[in-house]
Simulated assay, not measured.
Amino acid sequence: MAATEQSEVKVGIDPAEIKLFGKWSFEGVEIRDPSLKRYISLKPVWLPHTGGRHEHRRFGKAEVPIVERLINKLMRPGRNMGKKHLAYNIVKQAFEIIYLRTGENPIQVLVRAIENAAPREDVTRIMYGGITYFVAVDVSPQHRVDVALKHLTEGARMCAFNNPKSIEECLAEEIIAAAQGDTKSYAIRKKEEIERIALSSR
């Protein structure tokens, strides 16, 4: 196929027809938290794999599809590092489980989980006259998304460790619980703990 024909095919695609994993539509997915709108990318993609094109641009990861950022976080510890296809399949199957249990679009459930699990306040260490003390600070929106994704994947990993439950089931349960604001979710408990410490450090 000639380059011109390929470009014509790409131009003719309606964004509503593009579905994640060929199943889940990005249409109608809403972000309720106004501060996170710019940092949760819901650009329609079939395959969440950008190949690290954002790497050398400041705030470039804000343009990476949010599902791909979840996949990347699953690869974090040394044992799973670089195994993107494995992480991709875990998220794909977790989304199927989320749909079967909730009947909702898994992308919307993930967005709600990130909004609920993102801490608004944290503490920073300040040294003054040889004395170290902690001061409460507001968390930037970009960091809020990072922390929420980290805790969601961490909770799933801890749940699946030494457990007959698969990582896919654990990830699905973690995302559903966080989306509902349930304290059974590791991410929600961590967020409340961070905010409680910050409140006592004001």
Results as ranks from 00 to 15, higher is better:
residue 124 T to C: 06
residue 134 F to H: 13
residue 69 R to K: 08
residue 128 Y to A: 12
residue 123 V to S: 05
residue 59 F to M: 13
residue 35 S to Y: 05
residue 87 A to C: 10
residue 61 K to V: 09
residue 76 R to A: 07
residue 70 L to Y: 05
residue 44 P to Y: 04
residue 102 T to F: 01
residue 152 L to G: 09
residue 97 I to W: 00
residue 110 L to W: 03
residue 129 G to Q: 10
residue 43 K to R: 00
residue 110 L to S: 04
residue 108 Q to G: 12
residue 147 V to L: 11
residue 113 A to H: 00
residue 123 V to N: 02
residue 108 Q to P: 07
residue 76 R to G: 05
residue 114 I to W: 02
residue 63 E to K: 07
residue 146 D to S: 12
residue 90 I to M: 05
residue 58 R to D: 15
residue 70 L to T: 08
residue 126 I to E: 14
residue 85 H to E: 14
residue 32 R to L: 10
residue 155 G to M: 06
residue 113 A to M: 03
residue 141 P to L: 03
residue 125 R to I: 11
residue 126 I to A: 05
residue 86 L to N: 07
residue 122 D to H: 00
residue 107 I to H: 03
residue 41 S to I: 03
residue 139 V to R: 04
residue 132 T to A: 11
residue 50 T to H: 10
residue 47 L to T: 14
residue 112 R to G: 07
residue 155 G to Q: 09
residue 104 E to V: 00
residue 149 L to E: 09
residue 54 H to C: 10
residue 73 K to R: 11
residue 68 E to A: 04
residue 93 Q to I: 06
residue 58 R to F: 10
residue 80 N to S: 12
residue 147 V to R: 07
residue 50 T to R: 01
residue 74 L to N: 11
residue 135 V to D: 11
residue 122 D to V: 02
residue 30 E to L: 11
residue 90 I to A: 02
residue 53 R to Y: 10
residue 31 I to V: 14
residue 65 P to R: 00
residue 34 P to N: 01
residue 154 E to D: 15
residue 62 A to E: 15
residue 152 L to S: 06
residue 80 N to Q: 10
residue 141 P to W: 04
residue 87 A to S: 10
residue 84 K to V: 09
residue 99 Y to P: 03
residue 60 G to P: 13
residue 148 A to R: 00
residue 93 Q to M: 06
residue 124 T to S: 11
residue 31 I to H: 01
residue 41 S to N: 15
residue 97 I to A: 00
residue 143 H to D: 15
residue 153 T to M: 10
residue 149 L to D: 11
residue 115 E to A: 02
residue 49 H to D: 15
residue 82 G to T: 08
residue 119 P to W: 02
residue 94 A to P: 12
residue 153 T to I: 09
residue 96 E to S: 07
residue 153 T to N: 12
residue 61 K to M: 04
residue 142 Q to A: 14
residue 73 K to E: 15
residue 116 N to F: 00
residue 140 S to K: 11
residue 64 V to H: 05
residue 130 G to I: 09
residue 134 F to N: 13
residue 38 R to T: 13
residue 65 P to C: 07
residue 53 R to C: 07
residue 46 W to R: 07
residue 103 G to I: 01
residue 48 P to L: 01
residue 122 D to L: 01
residue 125 R to V: 13
residue 69 R to L: 14
residue 60 G to Y: 02
residue 73 K to Y: 11
residue 113 A to T: 06
residue 150 K to M: 12
residue 33 D to K: 00
residue 80 N to E: 15
residue 118 A to V: 05
residue 86 L to Y: 13
residue 98 I to S: 05
residue 139 V to D: 12
residue 52 G to E: 11
residue 102 T to L: 02
residue 98 I to A: 04
residue 85 H to A: 06
